[in-house]
Simulated assay, not measured.
Amino acid sequence: MTRSVWLKADDAVGDWEARKRRITAGLEAGVDWVLVDEGDVERVRELGQVNVAAFSNGDVHVMDAENEGSDADAVVVGKGGEGDGTVDLPSDFSGSADLSTLRANGDATQGGYVRILNESYEAFAEAVAEEAEYTIVIGEDWAIIPLENLIARIGEETDLVAGVTTAEEARTAFETLELGADAVLLDTDDPDEIRQTVEVRDEAGRERLALTTAEVTTIEQTGSADRVCIDTANLMDHDEGMLVGSMARGLFFVHAETAESPYVASRPFRVNAGAVHAYVRTPGGETKYLSELQSGDEVQVVDTDGNTREAIVGRVKIEKRPMFRVQAELTRENGETDRIETLLQNAETIKVATNEGRKAVTDLEAGDELLLYYEDTARHFGEAVEESIIEK
């Protein structure tokens, strides 16, 4: 599931200068949506590129080819009506003005805004969800149970957006019932809280990999080859690196160059990843050949516990360098032995993760246990496929 962060910036926040400060902090942090009043849509677009949702007074406006950029990407019904309690909620939801507006504009990208004041409003939110692409629910003295109820009852017909005021509330919303809300609507002026909420969003969508080990059986010099250094636009920590290998089913953990060396300064943005033919794991469980990488691509950074995040490729350096062939074996779940291997540069600055800790590839010996990610599946154009492929 792809999570998103909405930032509330309507007139309840204050005057335009106060709203502008909040929106600017959101843009700098990387929020996905900004929710404003209709009159602020053009102002938001002047500040930067972001999806803009606008509270509607009943007249639905959406972007179209003739009026591009002047109107909202989505309109939200419910402010100043039954949704926020301004108008009493009718006992017969079919007679609701807010629902009537949503139904009358079925072709528009739209959302419904509902404050959960009691159980009747939970039921109202469910009715809104049947009509709206986005269903925004705001808890009064928010508790877990109403959100659990809504996550359990509302299906995939809508994106459920939970109102929050802190990053920790956002984390709870994303984790509730192990499914979580699709998005959060954050209401805060604190730039740090906005940034931390975006970080929570990113964490919620990341893979956690089950890493294993394989025993080194052969380490030998092979001569020179075209070697790839991946220089990212992100700094990596001491326990982070990338998963690379000659065979897609078994990718070796290669550390980022975070360690100081007598010969060269640390390069915490770099992974010396191997030869041009090798694979590197990318976000979403796919792979790319190292030779295909270019500036602006995304690669997956992983730590020794299997936690992952994304990094942007800033530069790819391909140079001829002397190489080692590293071969290792592991036992599959069915008891059979599998052999995997890769080529790594013959240099003491290239480190791999072993059962004894971080180790230079030049110091590797038969019997060392290397950390890797193994999946017994074939790959076709980077995608896992169910077919038999022999790699050797």
Rank of each mutant, 00 (worst) to 15 (best):
T218A: 11
F174Y: 15
D40P: 09
T166V: 00
Y373N: 09
E68K: 11
D237A: 15
E156V: 06
L370Y: 01
G180S: 11
A248F: 06
V361L: 03
M247A: 10
R227P: 05
G245Q: 03
D64G: 15
E365G: 02
M236G: 09
L185A: 04
K351R: 05
N307W: 14
G250A: 12
N307K: 14
G285N: 09
V41Q: 03
A9Q: 09
N105I: 00
D92F: 09
I23V: 15
G335W: 05
G95N: 05
L293G: 02
D98N: 12
N149P: 02
E286Q: 14
D303K: 06
G306Q: 06
E348N: 12
G306K: 06
Q221W: 15
A353H: 07
H277Q: 10
V161K: 01
F252M: 13
T197F: 15
G274C: 11
A378N: 04
D363V: 04
R267L: 14
T232I: 05
A259D: 14
V62F: 09
R45T: 08
S266T: 06
V75L: 09
L343Y: 12
V87H: 08
L290G: 03
L209V: 10
A129C: 04
I136L: 13
R153G: 01
E42I: 12
E257C: 03
T172I: 14
W142A: 14
L102Y: 07
V36E: 04
T349D: 09
A353V: 05
R249V: 01
D297M: 12
R332Q: 12
D73K: 05
E240M: 15
S261F: 08
V299S: 10
F55H: 10
N118F: 04
A347T: 09
D192S: 11
T212I: 06
N105E: 02
E175R: 15
